[in-house]
Design a protein around this nucleic acid. Structure first.
Length: 602
RNA sequence: GGGGUCGUAGCUCAAUUGGUCAGAGCGCCGCCCUGUCACGGCGGAGGCUGCGGGUUCGAGUCCCGUCGACCUCGCCA
């Protein structure tokens, strides 16, 4: 008996009551079997879902006999009739739970070894094993949904940008080291002995060149490579939506980006995002949230209380202030019920978490009502005079029953500690409302930042980001005050996209290079081709890049970026499935003029 | 590169202070079972405790090294 599996009627997850009485052909994998000796039930899975197959020994003995040999993940084809389940047998937890398929014929298309883990959602197994058996991992409904959603989001990108007059143009993977900060992946050249290509960290310079080529509106869905350590939200190769436009100012680019996000949230989640997205200056983000990608779904905003702390005799406060640091705090409404254990004693206490990122400790007070007035109790309460107490309560809006947590250190560290604390407290106290999509633009970034280690300026965004026109004069007088024409899309505390208007004037570009301690010669060597193009009638231009992997992570509510990739790598950049990277033949090395110089084994 | 946690059956984990500690659940195999959907019942197989050294009468347990995973800092937009 051979079933024409190429004449499949529909996907398993699509069988519904409308097909009752029809004879259908299905293909899929055995998810579970329930063998009663007589009746056998099989849940058959494909990419669209599950359907229950029924094998009856009285009506179809050969099919029933075959069903007895089925095991998990066997690939089978069946023909049978769709039937309504008896009232009491309906499974409301199953999309196809109203019906079942009475199987008349079955073919085992292929057998399976016993899978190393159950192919179902919410499995508890190691990432490494999942990656080693990725083909099984990807059979899980959640992973199928993730990759299918990814496809849809990318399709919407192409539709949207095509609708808006953009042209998709590919740029090279074998290219020259780009100016972004990350380490390059290198590819040795066989024909140019001793020379190397770099895989692109982004097509940044190529898309600018395409503007100079007159393409006006460019987009590309492109793989980018950065040889840095992985994280939960970072892979060595990842995908960006890359966009660049000519003859535009910031609002034009931002409108285009918003338009896409509105469309994808509408089409995939059915959510209408209000536009324009709110704008928040970088300085405000840092002051109130301590981070340039603020999560505005919950309050817990940071308040500067340096002036009040100055009046105390608390060295933990006054010490950093004397050194030009800051004392800031967040008020946790109702936070007086947080136990001392959770604040400073337990292994996973807030204090230990902060010490883990370099904090000295976690000063705090709890507020009670005493003599009709809010009074500080516990923690560092004793350092506050009644006047300072009143002033602080006024400043942060504290009421009895609240807690206040402080950070006192350099400004950078205070921001780091309190932003992390904000996040942690919000999570622990369930202050993050579900179903909220807080999109916002962070704008008014500084153009440059200064690094003390080597006493020089670095570009906050990249060296081709244009300064605000009204800040141009600051490049000479006070470079750190100059703001950039740069903008980031932040969603619920996740940086989703970022971009800028680029420099299109050769003289401004020279000034910026000078500030970045790049000599004319170095600049020519590193990106002479861009400078050359800038001398041939460059249009004003700007654009943005969006992380497609992060986009899918948000759309699917995943907490790991890995789950948006078909075949991701471990934190060490290793692929347990293919065993890449791996050593190569001596012959291959010889052709590339490469001699290994490995560290001696101890 | 630094710090931390972990590595025991196919999977997830347990095993006082170093001393019958080679265990459980699930999975797997066999038999039984006609309505299950976490099916049920009975029985069974399955382990170089990541790897290599060391301490000890004795090591899953302690020490050193190594490999790998995860978290975290650095790095990374």
């Amino acid at each position: 008996m051979t079933i024409a599996y190429n004449e499949r009627s529909c996907y398993c997850g699509e069988v519904d009551s409308a097909r009752i009485g029809q004879t259908i052909t299905l293909c899929g994998w055995v998810a579970t079997r329930r063998d009663h000796g007589g009746m056998v039930f099989i849940d058959l899975r494909d990419r669209e879902g599950l359907v229950q197959l029924k094998f009856n020994p009285e009506t179809d003995p050969p099919a029933h006999e075959t069903a007895g040999r089925l095991r998990s993940e066997f690939c089978i084809a069946v023909r049978g009739q769709v039937a309504a389940r008896p009232e009491s047998m309906i499974n409301p937890r199953m999309r196809t739970g109203q019906i079942e398929v009475n199987v008349r014929e079955i073919d085992i298309l292929s057998a399976s070894e016993t899978p190393r883990f159950l192919v179902e959602d919410d499995i508890n197994t190691s990432d490494e094993l999942r990656l080693e058996y990725r083909f099984l991992d990807l059979r899980r409904p959640r992973m199928q949904r993730s990759l299918i959603t990814r496809h849809r989001a990318v399709k919407i990108i192409r539709d949207y940008f095509t609708d808006h007059g953009f042209i998709e143009i590919e740029t090279p993977f074998l290219t020259k080291s780009t100016p972004e900060g990350a380490r390059d992946f290198l590819v040795p050249s066989r024909k140019q002995a001793g020379s190397f290509y770099a895989l692109p960290q982004s097509p940044q310079l190529f898309k600018q060149l395409l503007m100079m080529s007159g393409f006006d509106k460019y987009m590309q869905i492109v793989r980018c490579f950065r040889d840095e350590d992985s994280r939960k939200d970072r892979q060595p190769e990842f995908t960006q939506l890359d966009v660049e436009m000519s003859f535009v100012q910031m609002p034009d680019v931002m409108t285009v980006a918003e338009g896409y996000l509105v469309r994808v949230w509408k089409e995939i989640l059915g959510v209408t995002l209000p536009t324009p997205f709110p704008r928040m200056p970088y300085s405000q983000a840092l002051a109130e949230y301590g981070i340039d990608r603020p999560d505005t779904r919950y309050d817990l905003r940071i308040k500067d209380v340096g002036d009040i702390a100055r009046k105390t005799d608390f060295k933990v406060f006054t010490g950093p202030l004397d050194k030009g640091g800051a004392v800031r705090c967040i008020r946790v409404p109702g936070g007086a019920d947080i136990s001392q254990s959770e604040i400073e004693k337990a292994d996973n206490s807030l204090q230990n978490m902060l010490k883990g990122i370099g904090a000295g400790g976690l000063p705090y007070v709890k507020i009670e009502l005493a003599d009709g007035k809010p009074t500080f109790k516990t923690g560092v309460a004793k350092f506050f005079s009644p006047e300072a107490t009143a002033e602080l309560c006024e400043r942060v809006g504290a009421e009895p029953g609240d807690a206040i947590f402080f950070a006192a250190d350099s400004v950078d560290n205070v921001c780091k500690f309190l932003s992390r604390l904000r996040e942690e407290i919000a999570r622990r106290r369930n202050l993050i409302p579900a179903g909220l999509w807080n999109f916002l633009w962070v704008i008014d970034f500084p153009l440059l930042e200064h690094h003390a280690e080597d006493n020089r300026y670095y570009a906050v965004h990249h060296p081709f980001t244009a300064p605000m026109d009204e800040d141009l004069h600051l490049l000479e007088s006070d470079p750190l005050k100059a703001r950039a024409k740069a903008y980031d899309v932040v969603v619920n505390g996740v940086e989703l996209a970022g971009g800028s208007i680029r420099i299109h004037r050769a003289d401004v570009q020279s000034t910026v290079f000078k500030l970045l301690s790049l000599t004319q010669e170095e600049a020519e060597l590193k990106f002479g081709f861009l400078l050359k193009a800038l001398r041939h009638g460059p249009p004003p231009h700007g654009g943005f890049a969006m992380g497609v992997d992060r986009l899918v992570m948000l759309l699917c509510g995943l907490d790991s970026l890995q789950d948006t990739f078909s075949f991701p790598k471990t934190a060490e950049g290793y692929c347990p499935l293919t065993l890449a990277p791996s050593p190569v033949d001596q012959k291959q090395l010889d052709e590339l003029w490469i001699r290994l110089n490995l560290p001696a084994k101890k």
